[in-house]
Simulated scan of single mutants.
Amino acid sequence: MADAVVPHFANDAGHPKIRIGVKEFMCVGARPPFDHPHIFIDMGDESEQVCPYCSTLYVYDHALNATETEPAGCLFEPGRAHAA
């Protein structure tokens, strides 16, 4: 059920930093089949957090909505095919 409300982000391109518009999210690493365990990350009072698996630095940006990322294209929608 939580998958429906918690955004998931992927980093196929190996970006060192991804700006996102939420502080609670799931990191999947790269998209399947190259993903790591999908982990929940909560920034709490902080504005950035590093994924312990893929070392992606996620930075909170209040100007972005929950499904936007900078660079664009890092939103992962479980169960939906990804166009290359």
Rank of each mutant, 00 (worst) to 15 (best):
A13D: 13
R19E: 13
P37N: 09
P78R: 11
C54H: 03
M43Q: 05
A84I: 09
V28K: 05
A2R: 10
Q49Y: 08
G21N: 07
L64G: 04
A63I: 08
P71A: 09
H82F: 12
H15Y: 14
H38Q: 15
A2F: 11
K17R: 14
I39H: 00
A10T: 06
G44N: 05
A66R: 15
V6D: 00
I39R: 03
Q49M: 14
M26H: 13
E70W: 09
H38V: 06
L75T: 09
A2M: 12
P78Y: 07
A30L: 09
I20V: 11
D35W: 01
A83Y: 11
G29N: 08
T69N: 07
P52Y: 06
F9G: 01
M43H: 02
G29R: 03
H15I: 00
R31L: 09
H82T: 12
C74L: 03
M26Y: 15
D45V: 05
A83C: 08
V22E: 04
Q49G: 04
A81Q: 13
I41F: 02
F9C: 05
P33L: 09
G79K: 06
S55K: 15
E48V: 00
C27M: 00
E70P: 03
D42H: 08
H38L: 00
G21P: 02
R31C: 10
D42Y: 04
Q49A: 15
V6A: 02
R31S: 14
E77I: 13
G29K: 02
E48I: 00
V50Y: 09
A83D: 14
Y60E: 02
V6R: 06
M1N: 12
E77N: 14
D61S: 10
G73A: 08
Y53G: 00
F34D: 14
A83S: 12
V5Y: 14
P32Y: 09
F25E: 01
G21C: 06
N11V: 02
D61M: 04
A13Y: 10
G44M: 02
G44L: 05
C74S: 10
N11H: 04
K23A: 07
L57T: 11
P52C: 06
D12R: 01
D35P: 00
V50E: 10
A30M: 13
D45A: 13
A63Y: 08
Y58W: 06
Y60I: 01
A30V: 02
Y58P: 00
D45P: 03
V22D: 01
V6P: 02
M1T: 13
P52F: 07
G79C: 07
